[in-house]
C-alpha cells in the first residue's frame, strides 16, 4: 500500500522540524503527546476527510532542538509561527496530553487561524485533590500499563521491540519532556486564568479512566472554556486516539460536522 501521507522537513523562522501530512479537506493540525510523533491509524482515518498536518515538536525525534526551547509557552509560540508560515486559515487544532497543553496555551494567545480546538486528555492545569500517576518514577512498562484501560492493549505495546534508532528517539523525547513538564509537573499554574479567552468551538475528549489526567481535569477545562463540549469515552485510559480510535474519530468528526452545519444555517 502506498503511504497515505508524506514526510517533509520544514523550517519555521530557521528552526527545522519533521512534518507529516496526508489527505485533503479542511486543515487539521494534530499535536502529539509525550511519547512522540508517528502516523497512527487514527490519523489515517482522519485523512479521509481532512488535510491532516502532524508536526513533530521541536526537541522531539528528528526535529531540531532549538536553544530557546525551555517550556510549553515556547512551543505554543512556535506553533503560532508555524500557522503563520503555512497560512492554515480555518484549521482544526487537536492535541493529546502534552500536545493538548500546547494547543490550549496557543489558543489563549490567539485563535486567529483556528476553526476549532480539541483537547484530548490534555495536560496543562492542576486540579486540587486529584491523584495522578508519576510518569517519571515508574518503568516504561508500568507507564504503559497505567495509560491503558485494557491491559491486553498495554501488554501489546510493551511487547514491541524498538530498534536502536527508536530507542534513541525515545530517550531524546523523554529528556525534552522532562525539561518541559517536570516542574510544575504537567501544568502551568497561570493557564487556567486565561482559558476564557478561547473563542472558538472547543471539544474535550477524555478517556473515562485516565490515570495521568483524570476526568476531573476535563471537567475543570469544561468549566473554564466558554461553550466547551465534553465527550467521555468509556473503557478508555489516557490515549483515546490509540485505545479507542473509532470512538475518538467519531467524537471529533461529529463535533466538527455539527460546527459546519451551524455555520451554514447561521
Amino acid at each position: 500500500m502506498a503511504a497515505d501521507y508524506s514526510t517533509s522537513v520544514i523550517a519555521v523562522r530557521g528552526y527545522r522540524i519533521r512534518l507529516m501530512r496526508g489527505g485533503a479537506g479542511d486543515p487539521l493540525v494534530y499535536l502529539h503527546g509525550a511519547s512522540g510523533a508517528s502516523w497512527l491509524p487514527f490519523l489515517h482515518t482522519l485523512s479521509k476527510h481532512f488535510d491532516v498536518i502532524a508536526p513533530e515538536h521541536p526537541g522531539f525525534g528528528e526535529s531540531e532542538t532549538p536553544d530557546w526551547l525551555d517550556n510549553i509557552h515556547d512551543l505554543a509560540y512556535f506553533y503560532l509561527d508555524l500557522l503563520d508560515e503555512l497560512k492554515l486559515a480555518g484549521a482544526h487544532l487537536v492535541g493529546n496530553s502534552l500536545g493538548g497543553w500546547i494547543a490550549a496555551e496557543l489558543a489563549v494567545r490567539s485563535t486567529r487561524w483556528l476553526a476549532s480546538l480539541t483537547l484530548c486528555d490534555a495536560a496543562g492545569i492542576h486540579v486540587a485533590g486529584v491523584k495522578q500517576m508519576d510518569t517519571f518514577l515508574c518503568t516504561d512498562a508500568q507507564r504503559l500499563r497505567d495509560f491503558f484501560y485494557d491491559p491486553k492493549k498495554a501488554e501489546a505495546m510493551i511487547a514491541r521491540v524498538l530498534s536502536p534508532e527508536q530507542e534513541d528517539v525515545a530517550l531524546k523525547n523523554r529528556t525534552i519532556v522532562a525539561k518541559l513538564v517536570w516542574q510544575p509537573r504537567d501544568q502551568d499554574p497561570h493557564l487556567h486564568k486565561w482559558l476564557h479567552r478561547i473563542d472558538v468551538p472547543t471539544l474535550l475528549v477524555w478517556g473515562d479512566t485516565d490515570r495521568l489526567f483524570p476526568k476531573e481535569h476535563a471537567l475543570a477545562y469544561e468549566k473554564a472554556i466558554p461553550g466547551a463540549k465534553l465527550v467521555i469515552i468509556p473503557q478508555c485510559g489516557h490515549v483515546p486516539q490509540i485505545e479507542q480510535p473509532d470512538a475518538f474519530v467519531d467524537a471529533l468528526e461529529s463535533f466538527i460536522g455539527a460546527q459546519r452545519r451551524q455555520r451554514k444555517t447561521a
Binding site: F136, L137, L171, R174, T175, A178
Partner: peptide
Amino acid sequence: MPTEMLLPPGYTDAASMK
C-alpha cells in the same frame, strides 16, 4: 533505587544514560 529514580531524564547526557 530503581534506575528511573537514580537517573531522571535530562540529569545526564543520552550516552551516559544508555
